[in-house]
C-alpha cells in the first residue's frame, strides 16, 4: 500500500496539466485563504471589541461554542441547494463552500483574539492609562501587541481547520485536494485517495510553518515564550 501511494505521489503524470496535484493544491490554498481572510475580517473586530470593553463576554463564549458544533457537511449541502439556483457560474459552487469554511474558521480566531486581549497584564494596561492614553491608543499600542501570540495561535488553528475541511468542497463539485479523496474513492483508486489525504496533511503543516515564521517576525521579542520568565 505504502509503495502504491508513493508511486501515485511521484508519478509525473499527476504533477502536470488540469486537475494535477499542483493545480488542485493551488485551488485548495486559494479557497482556504479566501475563507481565512473573510473569517478574520469578521472575527477579529468582534474579538477586539469584546476583549477590550469586556461587554458581551457571555454571548461571545456561547456563540463560539455553538459555532463549533455546526456540522460542516450538512451546512454545505443546505447552502449548495439554496444557492445553486440563485447564483450563476462558478460562484454558485464556491459560495456554499466558503460559507462553511468561514463559519468553521471564525471560532478559533474569535477566542484567540478575545482571550489574548483579556489576558494582557493589568499592570501594562494601568500604566498605559496612567500615561494618559485614550481607549483606542491603549487597544492598538498596548493590548493588541501584547495579545499577538494568542491572536496568531487563533489564526493558525483556524487555518489548520480550514485547510483540513476544505476537502469537503469536492463533494459539491469544486476543485481542491478533496477531489483526490472523492474521485479516488469513486474510482476505487485507494492510492489516489490516501495520497490526497497525505497531501492535505502536508499542506496544513507547511502553511502552519509559514504562519509560525510570520508570528516570529510580528510578535515583539519581549513576548517570546523564552523571555517571559
Amino acid at each position: 500500500m505504502i509503495a502504491t501511494i508513493w508511486a501515485w505521489l511521484t508519478d509525473p503524470a499527476n504533477w502536470s496539466g488540469a486537475g494535477s496535484i499542483p493545480d488542485q493544491t493551488l485551488e485548495h490554498l486559494r479557497l482556504s485563504f479566501i475563507a481565512l481572510v473573510v473569517a478574520a475580517l469578521i472575527a477579529i473586530p468582534i474579538g477586539l471589541y469584546v476583549g477590550h470593553t469586556g461587554r458581551g463576554r457571555v454571548v461571545l463564549v456561547n456563540i463560539v461554542s455553538a459555532f463549533r458544533a455546526i456540522p460542516s457537511l450538512g451546512v454545505l449541502f443546505i447552502a449548495a441547494l439554496l444557492l445553486l439556483p440563485r447564483l450563476k457560474g462558478e460562484l454558485a459552487f464556491e459560495l456554499p463552500s466558503l460559507i462553511v469554511l468561514v463559519l468553521l474558521g471564525m471560532p478559533p480566531i474569535l477566542s484567540g483574539v478575545y482571550a489574548g486581549i483579556q489576558q494582557v497584564d493589568p499592570a501594562a494596561r494601568d500604566a498605559a492609562r496612567g500615561m494618559g492614553m485614550t481607549g483606542q491608543q491603549r487597544l492598538w499600542r498596548v493590548e493588541v501587541p501584547c495579545a499577538l501570540p494568542l491572536i496568531f495561535s487563533g489564526l493558525r488553528s483556524s487555518m489548520l481547520q480550514i485547510i483540513a475541511t476544505a476537502t469537503i468542497a469536492a463533494v459539491v463539485g469544486l476543485g481542491g485536494l478533496g477531489r483526490f479523496l472523492i474521485d479516488g474513492q469513486a474510482n476505487r483508486k485507494y492510492d489516489e485517495m490516501a495520497g490526497g489525504a497525505i497531501l492535505v496533511a502536508v499542506l496544513a503543516l507547511l502553511v502552519d510553518l509559514v504562519f509560525a515564521a510570520l508570528q516570529r517576525f510580528a510578535v515583539s521579542p519581549g513576548l517570546a515564550p523564552a523571555a517571559r520568565r
Binding site: 500500500m1 501511494i5 489525504a197
Partner: peptide, 9 residues
C-alpha cells in the same frame, strides 16, 4: 492523522 489515514487505505 497520516498514519491513521494510510491504515484506512
Amino acid at each position: 492523522g497520516v498514519l491513521a489515514l494510510s491504515a484506512c487505505g
